[in-house]
Design a binder for these strands. Structure first.
Length: 249
DNA sequence: ACCTATGTTGATAC
DNA sequence: GGTATCAACATAGG
């Protein structure tokens, strides 16, 4: 589930209900989710601290603590942040903070591809997709020969776009996902940026990328929501890709 | 049973 | 350097 809109909602939840609460216990026993830390390392650094601010860039979140280290959080492919919910079965709560008021914050993730670590490295993360200016977008997205969809998925170039959101915005903008980036006109790049920002805004408000018109519709049928034509399916940038061959050129 | 698919990222190879 | 491929993880479904 988690692309930029889902992560922003998770960040907002942390901001709204988890800041200022004193941490008394940390479960960092999952050495894969908490890599490269050894069990107990994150616990030692965070016990007695409180979270003070929650940030996000692309799909990466990080949280400041009062006098302690920064805690990085990533939802991976199936992770969620849950606050003050009873523990999940099957050890799906991969990383847990317990507060002195009896509440808890958990990274709940069936797949274990989520991440919790101290002092995350953000240096290789591109600018946030929702806050990218026109000039920056043109420069970072418009150069090179990769298929445009592959570029949108490249977190070093632009942070926050995942497989579903990429299909949604390319459909909205009427651009073939296989087009080489360098072949896009300035007008097409500007349109793409506009549609991307709109898609992110809508999805964040409505609860996630699956609420997008193209993505939502595709769950029940494989026709274009606009023209009704049969959608095409293929692999672009290594990911399953759907598009409308009649409208996306 | 076995095979495929799945919203992620990172390492590796060309 | 840019791009493509595969592996990491665990679950769901045909």
């Amino acid at each position: 589930m988690p692309e930029l809109p889902e992560v922003e909602r998770a960040r907002a939840v942390i901001e709204a209900v988890a800041l200022g609460r004193r941490i008394v216990t940390v479960d960092d026993a999952d050495t894969y989710v908490c890599r490269p830390h050894a069990p107990g390392e994150i616990a030692a650094a965070l016990t007695g601290r409180a979270l003070t601010r929650a940030y996000r860039r692309g799909k990466t979140m990080w949280v400041d603590t009062d006098g302690g280290p920064v805690l990085g959080l990533h939802l991976g492919m199936a992770g969620r942040i849950v606050v003050d919910e009873p523990p999940a079965p099957n050890r799906w709560d991969r990383f847990v903070l317990e507060f002195d008021d009896g509440g808890r914050l958990a990274l709940r993730d069936k797949r274990r591809l989520g991440r919790a670590l101290l002092e995350p490295d953000l240096s290789r993360l591109g600018p946030d997709a929702a806050r990218m200016g026109r000039e920056t977008f043109r420069a970072r997205i418009g150069a090179g020969r990769a298929p445009i969809k592959a570029r949108l998925l490249d977190q070093h170039a632009i942070a926050g776009v995942g497989n579903l959101l990429a299909d949604e915005v390319l459909w909205r903008a009427g651009i073939d996902p296989r087009r080489p980036t360098g072949d896009l006109s300035t007008a097409e790049l500007d349109r793409l940026r506009r549609d991307l920002r709109a898609s992110v805004r809508d999805a964040t408000r409505q609860g996630g990328v699956h609420t997008g018109r193209f993505i939502r519709d595709r769950r029940v049928q494989t026709h274009c929501p606009r023209c009704g034509g049969e959608l095409a399916k293929g692999v672009v940038g290594g990911r399953t890709t759907w598009w409308c061959p009649a409208e996306q050129a």
